[in-house]
Nucleic acid binder design. Sequence first.
DNA 1: GCCGCAATGTACGAACTAGTGCGTTTTGGT
DNA 2: ACCAAAACGCACTAGTTCGTACATTGCGGC
Lengths: 237, 237
Amino acid sequence: MRVARQVTKRRAKDEAASHASAGGGKVVARAKTRTNDPDRTKANIIEIATHEFSEKGLSGARIDEIAERTRTSKRMIYYYFESKEGLYRAVLEDSYRRIRTIEASLDLENKPPLEALAQHVRFTFDYQLGNQEFIRLVMVENIHHGQHIAQLSRTQQEGMGAIETLRNIVERGIEAGVMRKDLDPIDLHMSISALSFFNVANRHTFSTIFKVDMTTPAATAARRESVADMILRFVAP
Amino acid sequence: MRVARQVTKRRAKDEAASHASAGGGKVVARAKTRTNDPDRTKANIIEIATHEFSEKGLSGARIDEIAERTRTSKRMIYYYFESKEGLYRAVLEDSYRRIRTIEASLDLENKPPLEALAQHVRFTFDYQLGNQEFIRLVMVENIHHGQHIAQLSRTQQEGMGAIETLRNIVERGIEAGVMRKDLDPIDLHMSISALSFFNVANRHTFSTIFKVDMTTPAATAARRESVADMILRFVAP
DNA sequence: GCCGCAATGTACGAACTAGTGCGTTTTGGT
DNA sequence: ACCAAAACGCACTAGTTCGTACATTGCGGC
């Protein structure tokens, strides 16, 4: 099995090589025009690595395997990211950067507070549902006691905009008399995150133990509404 | 370092042995009496392994390290558990068995429904807070798509009693007119779990990003009440 | 007593894995 | 056109890691 794997691997490589030289034809040297593109290479490595780390964890992921899936070589991983942990940190940083960017894109400040909150909750729920790689990376990072995200520079670990969004909504909600006065935005965000996160993070053990399928459209929709409902009831005066 | 450890272990064993023979009285000669005790050995291995797996994950844990912390040898791990994954499965099974046992111990059926629910929520919250090894094992298992818990026999992956407890509480709550009629015990349990779980599982990344300390007694107490409050508001008619 | 199996310890190996030395090619500046 | 630096690939290694062959001791039944 392991041997077979090696053979397969080697064969694939050889085929690629012969394809290349066959395409080159006569002036053999020509076919191999390598194009240097550092940004694309780095981005490609991070993309593959994101998948691998989120799938197998930091210790479970294999640099060789990442390298193989990449359009470049293992040497380049170390050239750009220094070490396995360095690559992992880059992956974390990139994932958090992306989520931070997207989170700001919603325009909720003009809508009535309760409506805005409901929409924010549903958006968070759906975002986490649609970005399971990110969720899994967060799990992995917490298994490691958050020690790697702690190493990122201050600006890179900056709190998501969610808190500010919530603060704004809550303020307007209180003013409009539709929310109670003692709400803490961070506490509220924690609840919204918790409910959305669990739905993705623990679905495997939960559905095995309770023998339910959490992935059907019906189950997802029901759960989303339950979560939104719970949050709305929570903020009511 | 390694040698020193070995020596320590050996000495401890010898002392135990001489104690035993001293108690026995007569034939002092056998200082090196190895006592076969399969149950104790297995339990000891599982205890250490539980800690290691919950700390470093399945791929991160090292069999050699587990063996070293054990009062026995690596050979015994393979003797009783066959493989690394076999040991991991035994750890999972044991952890779930323990939680199942404890969960049934609370007597809530006699208390008024709302009070019973509040107590159940606080208990769940505190149990998860106090059993972080278990929480981390669940995270690890979900990183692996729950594939190992799925391999456990049906009875071993049987749903926790929590659902029945909740069903009972909800039924009584509806009857007493203090809870709404359309509550789903599983959905409710999911919410309670989610809120309690997040508090432990994601504390590292969450506190780093939002620069709050979630471990102080004050923060813990506040969070527990927020969670209980949220659930109580959720079930209200 | 004693015999056979269960329980245990020691030492070792084959495969894997993160990381690198070194040579080659591409590119941008002058 | 030329050159230094950046980008890149190949093949290797030193250390680790799961797993096991082999030898030894304890123990329950007869």
